[in-house]
Amino acid sequence: MRTEELIESLVATAEPATPFLSPVRRALLWSVVAAACVGLGLLHFGVRGDEMSSWYRLGFTLRLVLLVSTMWLAVVAAFRLSVPGDDLRAWARWWPLVTLALLVLLVTADVVIEAAAGELGSPMRAWRCVRKMSYVGAFPAVVAIFLIQRAQAMEPKWALLLGVLAAGAAGAITSEIACPIHAPIHVLLWHVMPVAVSAVLGVSLGLLFSMRRVSRRGLARRAR
């Protein structure tokens, strides 16, 4: 197909298209959905018995602050990356990974301190925490993926990594508030690591989508 013909066909099929909201506004709306899911999750799973006193413990509060920061920074960066030309600030995509790394460092330091004191405890299996996180994070993840795919991310791997990471962080917030186990090794393995795993899942999805897009483009080119 010649370019002039392509232009004619694009013009003929063009319908009015309302512009999307800005990435920050979309991130705000997504955060409202995520907060509602966290709230519903807490209603369903219940809140840990020592919730009120936990807020006075620096470690717990810091962990929650870092999780909320990871969630917010990741979702804003994901939606920015899904708009062409809105992603020039290269460092913006790294901030959520920095906060996640800080979270891992903080909890690892706790684990080391406990281990030095001989109170490490056993890293027992706690799939229940992962399940809580998955139930709560699933819907925000689907919404984030849908919104990223509807826009036109030039780097889908990064956009989906950050979108799914934000959903994982929302799920981990629920685990933190609902889970009664305080042991740092448990927090590291069953609350924090699954957030990192969610980022890996996001990258895999991004790879899948970009491979599909490339093969679809190849088919379309051959058809032209």
Binding site: A14, A17, T18, P19, F20, S22, S82, V83, P84, G85, D86, D87, L88, R150, A151, Q152, M154
Partner: peptide, 19 residues
Amino acid sequence: RARRTYDPVRPFGPWFYAI
């Protein structure tokens, strides 16, 4: 496909050149 992502209050160049 991406025309809904263009925000009319922003400059057109960066959007187009990124694509």
